[in-house]
Computed example of a mutant assay.
Amino acid sequence: MRVAIVHDWSVGYAGSERVVEQLIALFPQADLYFVADFIPPTQRAFLAGRTPATTFIQHLPWARRFVRHYLPLMPMAVETIDLSGYDVILSSSHAVAKGVLTAPGQTHICYCHTPLRYAWDLQHEYLREAGLTHGFRRAAAIGLLHYLRIWDVRTTHSVDLFIANSNFIAARIRRVYGRDSVVVYPPVDTEYYTLSEEKRSYYFTASRLVPYKRIGLLLDAFRQMPGRRLLIAGAGPDLARYRHDAPPNVELLGAVPQSTLRQLMQHARAFVFAAEEDFGIVLAEAQACGTPAICYGRGGALDIVVEEETGLFFRQPSPLSLCEAVGRLEARTAGWDPHHIRRNALRFSVQSFHSNFLRAFESATLNPEVRHLQQVGS
């Protein structure tokens, strides 16, 4: 059985690349195809010495820095990948990878991190980042994104089985594509992120510093709680602005080594999480350290955190709602059991990902009755 793994563009080792890493581990003889590969040399270990084949996006001017600006060309790019010699195609898709061309007799399994977010949920953010805020160029871009939505829905017909990374994404797949999916949580390195019973007084979060992560909300909330200390790890285009806006009790650490990240997670009083994420691997890592969470009660966090057992939710994306949740956490007299919090996180281990993914893979490739499963979204 010849297997191909197809992934969107990549600029580093992040959540979707962790899935690719484990697909390579499960199918070491598979061939790799990326829409574009701009992964730095220091982060390429997850490829196990492999060099993915890429599309023409790789060679476009300034693509390394502005690859997302070429999104309108990516449907054409992914359709140039010749997969005619393969029995099974595994696409790891948060944008266009699921749109590869397949033929009768091939099985296409799509691990969907999200439907094409830049054409659906994040259209306005994409337009701002690309500098398309007014005039004819904005109107043209909106027209292209409309085309991308049509293309995105049309290409679902080539997928035999959708695998969603959370129940939140499974619901989004049903809403956007009209298809059912199997939920297989992404892999979390629970062997590296280990339990610590020693908790200190600071609160902690780790995030890429971009608008949808809602770091500004955290700054505003902790400005109203001057007696609490918040540490924020992570880099991104908004780092300088957040450092300028941060109150004295909030410290932005920038990018930190993985060992420091683990230590900060292990000893935090609570991990604070304000974004509405597709899943939220960093939140699961913190739970693997036995650290309770205070998180916005939407998105993948609902799959990770068990309310009142491993953390608390705040229901509105507002500083007041977050402050109230911090108060509830500090007023809790029963305390938190770090061992129970970690046991909950073991559901997301690498071993669990392997067994659950292989079960879905076998259902799609070995049982004729489930070929083209959910094609009508029943």
Score class of each variant (00 low, 15 high):
residue 212 Y to G: 00
residue 42 T to A: 13
residue 174 R to C: 04
residue 214 R to G: 09
residue 290 G to F: 00
residue 228 R to H: 15
residue 234 G to C: 09
residue 351 Q to V: 09
residue 171 A to E: 15
residue 331 A to W: 08
residue 59 H to R: 13
residue 205 T to D: 13
residue 7 H to G: 01
residue 38 F to Q: 06
residue 152 D to H: 08
residue 293 A to K: 04
residue 284 A to H: 12
residue 172 R to N: 10
residue 181 S to H: 03
residue 27 F to K: 08
residue 121 D to L: 11
residue 288 A to H: 01
residue 358 L to K: 04
residue 139 A to P: 01
residue 175 R to S: 13
residue 181 S to G: 08
residue 342 R to P: 00
residue 212 Y to F: 14
residue 353 F to V: 06
residue 20 V to C: 02
residue 26 L to E: 02
residue 97 A to H: 12
residue 326 V to M: 05
residue 169 I to D: 10
residue 106 Q to F: 04
residue 219 L to W: 06
residue 317 P to R: 08
residue 364 A to T: 11
residue 126 Y to N: 02
residue 251 E to F: 03
residue 277 E to P: 01
residue 316 Q to C: 07
residue 60 L to K: 01
residue 60 L to C: 02
residue 256 V to R: 10
residue 83 L to W: 11
residue 363 S to Q: 14
residue 218 L to C: 03
residue 371 R to I: 13
residue 293 A to E: 09
residue 312 L to R: 02
residue 17 E to K: 04
residue 25 A to D: 07
residue 148 L to V: 03
residue 282 V to N: 08
residue 199 K to L: 00
residue 210 V to W: 06
residue 185 Y to C: 00
residue 100 V to A: 02
residue 42 T to W: 09
residue 243 R to F: 06
residue 45 A to V: 13
residue 338 P to A: 08
residue 149 R to G: 06
residue 88 V to Q: 02
residue 72 P to S: 05
residue 8 D to I: 08
residue 63 A to N: 08
residue 110 C to D: 05
residue 94 H to C: 04
residue 223 R to W: 01
residue 113 H to T: 12
residue 229 R to K: 15
residue 369 E to W: 09
residue 145 L to A: 05
residue 184 V to Y: 04
residue 189 D to C: 12
residue 366 L to T: 06
residue 344 N to P: 05
residue 174 R to E: 07
residue 25 A to L: 05
residue 198 E to N: 09
residue 197 E to V: 07
residue 265 M to P: 02
residue 316 Q to T: 05
residue 134 H to S: 13
residue 52 P to E: 09
residue 60 L to V: 05
residue 364 A to G: 12
residue 28 P to R: 04
residue 121 D to C: 00
residue 192 Y to E: 09
residue 333 T to K: 12
residue 141 A to T: 07
residue 89 I to K: 03
residue 241 R to M: 15
residue 186 P to Q: 06
residue 340 H to V: 14
residue 172 R to E: 14
residue 280 G to R: 11
residue 247 P to L: 11
residue 58 Q to A: 02
residue 295 C to M: 06
residue 121 D to K: 08
residue 137 R to C: 13
residue 231 L to R: 14
residue 253 L to C: 14
